[in-house]
Amino acid sequence: MLKLLLIYSYLTLPLCFLISKGKIKEGLLLLLAVYGVIFFCLLNYFDLIFQTIEKYYHSAYTFLEYSAFTFIFWVNIRNKFFRRFIILISIVFFLFQIYYVNSASVERMDSIPIGIETILIFIYIFYFLFDFSKNAKDTFIYNHYCFWLSVGILIYLGGSFFYYILVNNLEHEDVIRFGNLTYVAEIIKNLLFCIAIFIYKKSTANKIHNNLPKKIPNLDMI
């Protein structure tokens, strides 16, 4: 029941995209909508297809999740050095994933890549929040859509980190019991993502209103 709720909670993202009249050129909104559709499909259909090659399914899941979350923070972090660091570390992570998927035997889930993914995303979020709170002087952090995305991801990854790390060592009934806890965290994440979509729309509407192009006429010397 909870899993079903989780799967369908992913559909709220494209739904919010449509309700908020999101446009294709609004890249981040589109990314969240596509993220919702892809993960709905991954959870609803593709686990059946990938049943025989489960480790590829989990690796693909981790890869897509890491890519989506990282892209959000890569776009929002202004420090060039840190952006380069994200790109570099992501390449290393993807190479490790390829190595892992080909060499390691996966019992239930790819715990090590998930653990690394969680730690990396945590670092990006901490840096983003630190950077934002340092530089934002005239706006509250919770008026920025990325704050809600960060909180959602923190709850989701925080709530599932130890579960994914220890999942291969758990009894079947514990997997179900604690699995439900991660579903709750994931549903909360999706709801917070929906809030982020509306805040993004609101803030871009204000930005368009406030930042009308200021044209200075010709004041050259000749």
Partner: peptide, 28 residues
């Protein structure tokens, strides 16, 4: 002990998350 570690770890992570969010808001 694994389930205890899992339970405490998860609670710890969630407390850390909430703590961080509260800290950020207070700092703001």
């Amino acid at each position: 002990s694994t389930t205890t570690a899992l339970f405490l770890g998860t609670i710890g992570m969630l407390v850390l998350t909430i703590g961080l969010v509260v800290f950020i808001i207070m700092h703001q």
